[in-house]
Each structure stands twice: as structure tokens, then as C-alpha cells.
């Protein structure tokens, strides 16, 4: 089959809160739709509470979404039975944020990396070993680490082990949830280069979840920006970073300090005021309206639909952008 490897449509995830706090529902993800093409890296960017991790967990069905569909290679994984899901899971794998807590401290690296092979294949012991050894080599670690325990490794080495475990089955889709945010910059650079190299050589698709715009700009082909459980803008890397259209994307980019004092201090200091609204009682209309300098009555009355702003699929949800487009 051609086309997208992953199609997420109107994905919604609600969590019920404790009765003591009002018995409300946290609307973590509200109708999110996106696709990931074969061999494409899609960046999902957002701040704390934007719902980016929840989207990732729904995609691998670590969470059962409240509504919407997640179609992986033609099959809706929100509906497949357990047994079938298990088979599918060999084809999409996850890398987690914290390289310290995501590896079992009592397992050797060899066992950690071999585990998916043993769980999903009927390979012999020799084959399993060979695959684990190959995976470790692929992520740039010396064979000696196979016999080591996680605590003997540095943070960067551990994250490479996590990556080896995720890639040992040669999955079609990698979901990476903030894989470099716990690492120092020099180590982070190595992991980002490695991810880019591995993607090119192995050809997998990737959902790359991050709060760090510069990391998304380095690695991703396309980027989707999430705010309060909704995608507010999506576009190719070059378009989105060169010409962000949504006020939230613009202020997010403006708020991330550039590592260059001349340019950083010469920037206009447009700041978003306040803080994101509650996921329990999201504001009516556009989610950003309480903080947005451009908001008017319409932004409170009516949720904006996506406006396509380029021939390459750059889209954004903002009444102001839509008015501009239709006025032209």
C-alpha cells in the first residue's frame, strides 16, 4: 500500500479526574489529526500539558483513545484485538525520555536489547544474540557494553541502548518521546546525529515528540505544533520555521532564546501573557484566545478551522490567518 504509514484522525483522549477535584474530565487531546509518510520524521512540538505524550501513547495504544482512529499501515489499531495488536507492536517501537528509568537495572544490555526479539520472534538463542549485537553496533556502542548493566553506562550510552532496543526488530515506525531532553548538549548532538543517520539507513518513519523547537528543526521533515490538546499549525520544517503563521507558534519561536546574543537581544520581545488554560475547562473557541494579542470576539465564539497557507500543506488554525488569506 502507498500513502501514509500512519494516519491519525480526530484523536481524542479524556481522563477522568478525582471526584474531590470536581469530577471533571481532563481533555488531554482534542480531535488531533495528522499523517506520517513512509520514511518521514514528523515532529510533535508543544509545551507541558499540550498533550504531546498522550498522542504518542495513543498511537502505540499504551492508552485507549476516547475517540478517533489511529490507522497504521491500513489497520485501525484502536480497534484491533489484543492478539493482533501484539503482532503489530513489533512494527512500531518506542524510545522514552528518561534513559535512567526506562532500562531495567537488573538486566544486562544484551538482555534488554534482545527482549523485543524474544517477545516477537521464534528466533534461536544464537539468532537473538546476533540481532542484539548488531543493534548495539548500529547505535555506535562497542560490543563490550552487551555484558554491562545500565548503571555502568553514561546517560548518552543508555539512550543509545534504548534506541537499539527500539530498532532491533527493524520497525516501520519509531515513536520517540523527548529522547534527548535529559541529555547534555554535547551528548545530545551525538544522539540526534545518530537518529538522523539511522533513519536514512533504515528508512523508518518517526513520530518525534519534543518541547525543543531547535531539536525539531534539526531532525524533522515536518512539524506539528500542539497547544492545549489541539494541533494549531503543521507544515514542512522549512516553511514552519521560516514563516510561522499561528500566533502561538510565533510566540513559541520568539520565546526560545537563540544561542547568539546579538540576534537574541535584537529580537522583538512579543511575549505570551499568562499561562495555558486548564485542560478541564478549555476556553470556548480558539484555545489560545485568553492569551492571544490578536484575539477578538470571533476567537471566543467559534473554533477556527484549518486554513491552508501554502502549496506544500502548511496549515494553521487561526481566524486572523484565515481572514488574511481570504482577503487576498
Amino acid at each position: 500500500m502507498t500513502g501514509a504509514l500512519l494516519e491519525v484522525e480526530r484523536l481524542t483522549m479524556e481522563f477522568r479526574t478525582h471526584r474531590g477535584t470536581g469530577g471533571g474530565r481532563v481533555q488531554a487531546v482534542r480531535g488531533v489529526s495528522f499523517t506520517i509518510g513512509r520514511g518521514e520524521i514528523l515532529g510533535l512540538v508543544g509545551e507541558t500539558g499540550s498533550g504531546k505524550t498522550t498522542v504518542g501513547k495513543c498511537v502505540v495504544r499504551l492508552l485507549n483513545p476516547s475517540a478517533g482512529t489511529v490507522t497504521f499501515d491500513g489497520q485501525d489499531i484502536t480497534r484491533v484485538p489484543r492478539g493482533k495488536l501484539r503482532q503489530l507492536r513489533a512494527r512500531f517501537q518506542m524510545v522514552f525520555q528518561d534513559p535512567y528509568s526506562s532500562l531495567d537495572p537488573r538486566m544486562t544490555v544484551a538482555r534488554i536489547v534482545a527482549e523485543p526479539v524474544r517477545a516477537h520472534t521464534a528466533d534461536s538463542v544464537t539468532e537473538v544474540r546476533a540481532k542484539a549485537a548488531k543493534a548495539i553496533e548500529r547505535v555506535g556502542l562497542p560490543p563490550g557494553v552487551l555484558q554491562r548493566l545500565p548503571h555502568e553506562l553514561s546517560g548518552g550510552q543508555r539512550q543509545r541502548v534504548g534506541l537499539a532496543r527500539a530498532l532491533v526488530l527493524e520497525p516501520q515506525l519509531l515513536i520517540a518521546d523527548e529522547p534527548v531532553s535529559a541529555l547534555d548538549v554535547s551528548v545530545r548532538a551525538g544522539i540526534l546525529n545518530l537518529l538522523a543517520d539511522l533513519q536514512r539507513s533504515m528508512g523508518f518513519s518517526c513520530l518525534f515528540i519534543t518541547h525543543d523547537l531547535s531539536v525539531a528543526e534539526f531532525l524533522c521533515d515536518r512539524v506539528a505544533v500542539l497547544y492545549l490538546g489541539e494541533i494549531v499549525e503543521v507544515g514542512t520544517r522549512d516553511e514552519l520555521f521560516a514563516d510561522p503563521r499561528h500566533p502561538y507558534t510565533q510566540s513559541l519561536l520568539a520565546a526560545a532564546p537563540l544561542p547568539d546574543p546579538v540576534r537574541q537581544r535584537g529580537r522583538a520581545g512579543a511575549r505570551l501573557s499568562g499561562e495555558p488554560a486548564s485542560n478541564v475547562t478549555p476556553p470556548p473557541g480558539c484555545g489560545l484566545n485568553p492569551r492571544c494579542p490578536l484575539a477578538d470576539d470571533r476567537c471566543v465564539a467559534e473554533a477556527p478551522a484549518f486554513t491552508v497557507v501554502s502549496a506544500f500543506g502548511h496549515m494553521t488554525r487561526c481566524h486572523r490567518v484565515q481572514e488574511q488569506q481570504s482577503g487576498q
Binding site: 553514561s154 548538549v185 554535547s186 545530545r188 548532538a189 551525538g190 540526534l192 546525529n193 538522523a196 531547535s214 531539536v215 528543526e217 534539526f218 520544517r237 522549512d238 520555521f241 521560516a242 537563540l258 544561542p259
Partner: peptide
């Protein structure tokens, strides 16, 4: 090395012909 390890702008990187991030090997 620390400055080179930062992603910075993708456009600037392409123009400078530095597609990879600078790594600092070792610990």
C-alpha cells in the same frame, strides 16, 4: 564544541554546509 553541538537554524546549517551537529566524543 558546546556551541557547535547546538542545532541552531537549519537554513544556516545548510548554508554553512554543516548538516551534522558537532559532537564532543568521550566523557
Amino acid at each position: 564544541g558546546l556551541l557547535g553541538a547546538l542545532p541552531g537554524s537549519a537554513v544556516a546549517r545548510r548554508e554553512a554546509g554543516q548538516l551534522r551537529l558537532a559532537e564532543i566524543p568521550g566523557m
